[in-house]
Measured scan of single mutants.
Amino acid sequence: GSLMYASIFGNVSAIIQRLYSGTARYHTQMLRVREFIRFHQIPNPLRQRLEEYFQHAWSYTNGIDMNAVLKGFPECLQADICLHLNRSLLQHCKPFRGATKGCLRALAMKFKTTHAPPGDTLVHAGDLLTALYFISRGSIEILRGDVVVAILGKNDIFGEPLNLYARPGKSNGDVRALTYCDLHKIHRDDLLEVLDMYPEFSDHFWSSLEITFNLRDTNMIPGSPGSTELEGGFSRQRKRKLSFRRRTDKDTEQPGEVSALGPGRAGAGPSSRGRPGGPWGESPSSGPSSPESSEDEGPGRSSSPLRLVPFSSPRPPGEPPGGEPLMEDCEKSSDTCNPLSGAFSGVSNIFSFWGDSRGRQYQELPRCPAPTPSLLNIPLSSPGRRPRGDVESRLDALQRQLNRLETRLSADMATVLQLLQRQMTLVPPAYSAVTTPGPGPTSTSPLLPVSPLPTLTLDSLSQVSQFMACEELPPGAPELPQEGPTRRLSLPGQLGALTSQPLHRHGSDPGS
């Protein structure tokens, strides 16, 4: 009898404990919600809404976190579960008819179910419309201010047509639940991603989709105040780019002037030289400038040598048109050559190039014969006009050509200096018209024969001689050997007369 009593008592207590286990969990969670309300000092109306929603959600799901349970299964099984949970929507909604099984599984994985109690606001006026909503159960109302403009029910759709707008718009009203509602919502990016994977279904979906109420604000059109608020930074940046392009296009129409201050000032006329910023005076940081632009901040801005204009002085008759350009485009679109090309026009420029290279940067340069637009006047290309890779490749080509020119210049200078040193070592320090008596009659020769300089066969020296023939050397430049009979510069000019005159010897006659 005691054994029977113990078994009955144990079973009854276990049954009672299981009955009250759900209630215990409910009270535990309710205590957490109330502690949250007390800690954050939530006001009474919002506090009442929180408690009511918790009670309804507990009775609806029995305190089970559906998302946590669903995430515990593998992905393939999750797709089947989501397809079952959203079967009513996918079967009865017209846009989803005719979709393949794979497309429906992908869509079912992207849908999220939302449960809303009465009085809950789903979308506020001015919120971004980031999702498309399908009503599965219940009814909602749409308000503009305090005026109800629409009441939607089961199988209705609200949001915005995503295929017509590249960016999400703003809501033009509040969406509030009238009863307990079940909503299926899919985010904008998720829907577009699935439709991109199934393009054959995309056309059918957009053609058959009928949005019951379009929440997009109709005033959000390009150029409206609301649109400016939504895309303020983007609009200002776009206007700045367009104004920069218009100014650079105007600059290219004036090829007669070359400016070292950047493309923003290349198009300024002579009357605007004294102004601080020219056409860019209202925004000094709008356009890029070269490193020399920092010198323009000092006094005497109108007389600054940074602004270059072609000189009108005539060229000498024998002067060549100019050196070879550094870039391939210089032959086609440049009416002034790079300062480095002028360094190779003569030997005198070679000796004085490194010492006063900055001073020569603004000297007169030889002109190319074609009066085409200036290379320095070409505006900086924006990322939309020329690819970045093209600019980098041009810079690399320019750097390689500069290296080759520097190597060639160093070799030419070394060769010229070597020839000058050899000339100085071969010439005796001094010569006299009267020579010392020699031991015999073989001493009648006034000077030792001097062998002429070897013929220069280097390509670089031939180019130097060509430049010497075309360029007029300055007075202080050293002379180079030329073709024809060679003669030492330090010898007297009348050596031929010395050989014809008898030598005057000093000596005593033994017979006297």
Rank of each mutant, 00 (worst) to 15 (best):
S357V: 09
S202A: 12
D356G: 09
D412V: 01
S290R: 05
P325V: 15
D182S: 10
I135H: 01
S302L: 06
G438P: 15
L498A: 11
K170I: 11
G346S: 13
W206M: 05
Q418M: 11
R301P: 13
H506S: 13
I211S: 02
R247H: 13
W206C: 07
R176M: 05
A131C: 14
L215D: 01
G262D: 13
L419P: 05
P383D: 05
E193I: 04
E364K: 15
Q399D: 13
E406D: 10
R273V: 05
D396C: 15
L209A: 07
S381D: 05
P263S: 10
A177M: 04
M413F: 12
L365P: 08
E231C: 13
L164A: 09
G233L: 11
N338I: 12
V347P: 14
L261D: 07
P510N: 06
E472M: 11
S136P: 02
F205Q: 03
N338A: 13
L128A: 06
G173D: 03
Q494V: 10
G145P: 01
T252S: 13
P369A: 08
E406M: 06
K241E: 11
L395F: 11
Q482G: 11
I350T: 14
I151V: 12
E229A: 11
Q237R: 11
E193C: 09
L242R: 08
M424H: 14
G287V: 09
P481G: 12
D296P: 12
Q421T: 12
L395A: 08
P284V: 10
D196N: 10
L192F: 12
P317T: 11
S304M: 12
P437S: 09
I142D: 01
P161R: 10
T499P: 08
P310V: 03
E231V: 11
A477E: 13
R385N: 15
G323Y: 01
G145F: 06
P439Y: 11
V434R: 12
N377K: 13
Q237S: 11
Q423T: 06
L420A: 06
I378G: 04
A397G: 12
Y431G: 10
S445P: 07
K241H: 08
L498G: 13
Y180I: 04
R358I: 12
S139G: 04
S352D: 05
P373T: 08
G281L: 11
P437R: 11
A469E: 11
E364H: 04
I142M: 02
Q421R: 08
G223N: 10
S302T: 05
P502T: 12
E297Q: 09
S290V: 11
E406R: 04
E328A: 13
R246D: 10
L503K: 05
S283L: 05
F205T: 02
S202N: 11
F311Y: 11
D251I: 08
R245I: 13
S334H: 11
L495D: 08
S285R: 09
N214I: 05
M220Q: 11
R388C: 04
D459P: 07
L405Y: 04
T444A: 08
L456F: 10
S207H: 10
T218A: 12
L230Y: 12
L503W: 13
P222W: 06
P199C: 02
N403R: 14
R188P: 03
S227R: 09
F234G: 12
S283Q: 05
L453T: 07
L409T: 04
L340C: 09
T336R: 09
L242C: 12
R167M: 04
Q237V: 10
E324H: 07
F205M: 03
H184Q: 08
G169T: 01
F467L: 09
S272G: 10
L380C: 09
T179D: 04
S445E: 13
P320D: 08
A411D: 12
P454G: 09
P279T: 05
R307F: 05
K239D: 14
S465R: 07
K239T: 06
T499W: 10
L129V: 09
Q361M: 06
R408I: 08
L480P: 09
R176W: 01
